[in-house]
């Protein structure tokens, strides 16, 4: 079975992790490091993908400044989204030539990870054709946004576990009016600790991608990343 080294980054601000991902993806493309999976939560941030418009950020700048929420334009697919505490982020740095070499199937696999993770908490979520991510009705539970160069991935998935606070109100999620963000905790009707959701998602990830996750400490990663 293929191995993917997993690194838990805890809670981290957006930009340093973004820069780390870019360095790691470059090293992966050069074959210097193995496949990796980063799991983390971000400090509050709004990111705008390649299909995004700044018009989809609703909050005025002074509100964003007061809340210390930065708006960052990034190279992933998709429109605008929010990341923050209580949202589980998985950033796989995978060479897709070893994982099916199929962009659509990769996105579908990330959705599958979220659907099966939600199911572990008794929450039924589904895909909406034409609207990547996972949904319950018109409520969005999880997002995908991916960047691939030389078949090596970066960015990934964001699953709303138990948003504290829920700052999706600052934006038009995915640039789709009428879409409301919802969390696993809301749909399950009980608090869900991040650690519980993370453990479930990692187990599901290894099933969906047919890989074995091997823990890697953060120091080793940072040595690679610099």
């Amino acid at each position: 079975m293929k191995e993917v080294a997993h690194v838990a980054l805890g809670r981290a601000p957006y930009r340093p992790v973004w820069e780390l991902q870019r360095r790691l993806a470059a090293l992966r493309r050069q074959g210097h490091i193995p496949d990796l999976l980063l799991s983390l939560e971000h400090e509050p941030v709004i990111t705008v993908g390649r299909q995004g418009g700044a018009g989809h950020v609703l909050a005025p700048q002074e509100v964003l400044d007061r809340l210390k929420v930065e708006v960052v334009e990034v190279e992933r697919g998709g429109d605008v989204t929010y990341h923050g505490p209580g949202q589980l982020i998985l950033y796989p740095i995978l060479d897709l030539r070893d994982h099916g070499r199929d962009l659509r199937r990769y996105v579908a696999s990330l959705e599958e990870v979220m659907i099966r993770t939600a199911a572990r908490f008794g929450v039924e979520a589904h895909r909406r054709p034409g609207f990547p991510g996972i949904w319950q009705g018109l409520k969005k539970l999880g997002s995908v946004g991916v960047h691939v160069r030389g078949w090596v991935t970066m960015h990934g998935l964001a699953l709303n576990v138990d948003l504290q606070p829920n700052l999706f109100s600052l934006i038009v999620p995915c640039g789709l009016h009428g879409v409301e963000a919802v969390s696993l905790a809301q749909l399950a009707g009980r608090p869900i600790p991040m650690e519980e959701a993370r453990a479930a998602a990692l187990e599901v990830f290894s099933q969906v991608f047919s890989v074995r996750l091997t823990p890697l400490d953060r120091e080793a990663l940072e040595r690679w990343g610099t």
Partner: peptide, 10 residues
């Protein structure tokens, strides 16, 4: 850069 299904490919 091209994009399909929220995935950008360089």
């Amino acid at each position: 850069e091209v994009e399909a299904d929220k995935a950008v490919f360089v």
